[in-house]
Design a protein around this nucleic acid. Structure first.
Lengths: 185, 185
DNA sequence: TGCATTATTTAACATTTGTAAAAAGATTTG
DNA sequence: CAAATCTTTTTACAAATGTTAAATAATGCA
């Protein structure tokens, strides 16, 4: 099964552990712009994108802000809720037709006691996400908007298929400002 | 022993686990502005500040940028190195006379196999750090410099005892700009 | 104490980014 | 196909932030 092919490369689970996880997993198909998780809800699901793409977003002063993009093989969770149990003002939405694997996190976390290897695998996965968030912090903290755009646009797919308004808010600038940057380059 | 008092509140370790960790721990005293970890090194130590304060910093185009502040009871690690094994261009430096607890991370991680509870405790600790980094991301992505300063200055101690140049770079602005913001408020 | 050093503020001007509104281009749908 | 809608760019002006240099203020050390 394809999820485990992917996970095995990160940390190999025992047959037992895989059997335990299996019932927590579902495959879900979304159309373009579908809401995957509503704003204001608690995060109780860990998603892995198998095809397509999605974003985490929220509203700030009425503006739609994209905080995160996820593509094939990326994990997508609203960590500030998943790890605290608190509701979050962020939502998850697809940006095109998307296939996701959904893992029930409440049940998953319960497996941690019995299956040390499951806890380890997800510990490693989330450590990676943590490192990614630090890299992004660095870039927001001291790169100019132009630098951030150039960095991001190395990912050609992203720039091609995601509306520029989402890219602009992700970069922390307005769409007008992004248009100007694109015109210069 | 005070470290375990603190850790017990987060996740209670077995007596065995505590015994295993004990030899990996040392208490270190630093003077003001001491380098704790050099730029370019690999992060092999997890620090907990017991008194005083420290910062993570790096140079970008010759400018000294503060990425993180840590105070009493805060953990301080260069995660992008700790979890990848890669060297990092960031260093750790104290900002006043500081006491730290240092935990040898290579040895600690080896204990994870035998002591499931140690892995769990540190998993939880790092999940918290991950959530903190996301909160900071939010603020850098869509708050103005003034908003970020006002938010930060709720921590009176921080603003009082840390040089403004470090606060400015932490906020992602120049010191001149920070001075202007302070003059307005 | 007083000099030297470091930290902070201020000033003047340049550049970047924001705001609002309109224009141009692309896409969707009846 | 054409109207309607949505996306992206452009324009003009405003506000925020950067740069450089100088002026104050605070601190540390001989």
């Amino acid at each position: 099964m394809e999820l485990f092919n992917y996970l095995d490369k990160i940390y190999k689970l025992s047959v037992d552990a895989k059997k335990a996880i299996q019932p927590l997993i579902s495959h879900i198909h979304y159309n373009k712009n579908d809401m995957v998780q509503e704003i204001g809800s608690r995060c109780k699901t860990i998603y892995m994108v198998t095809s397509g793409c999605a974003r985490i977003f929220y509203y700030k002063d009425g503006n739609d802000i994209t905080e995160h993009f996820a593509f094939e093989n990326d994990m997508i969770v609203r960590a500030e809720s998943l790890f605290t149990g608190q509701p979050t003002s962020k939502g998850i939405q697809t940006l095109e037709e998307t296939e996701m694997i959904a893992i029930n996190s409440s049940k998953l976390f319960k497996l941690y006691d019995e299956h040390h290897d499951i806890e380890r695998l997800f510990r490693i996965l989330f450590e990676r996400e943590y490192v990614n968030s630090i890299k992004r912090l660095e870039s927001l903290q001291f790169n100019s908007a132009k630098e951030r755009y150039l960095e991001l646009s190395k990912n050609k797919t992203l720039v091609q298929k995601i509306p520029l308004k989402h890219i602009a808010s992700y970069l922390g600038i307005t769409q007008v400002s992004l248009s100007r940057i694109r015109a210069e380059v």
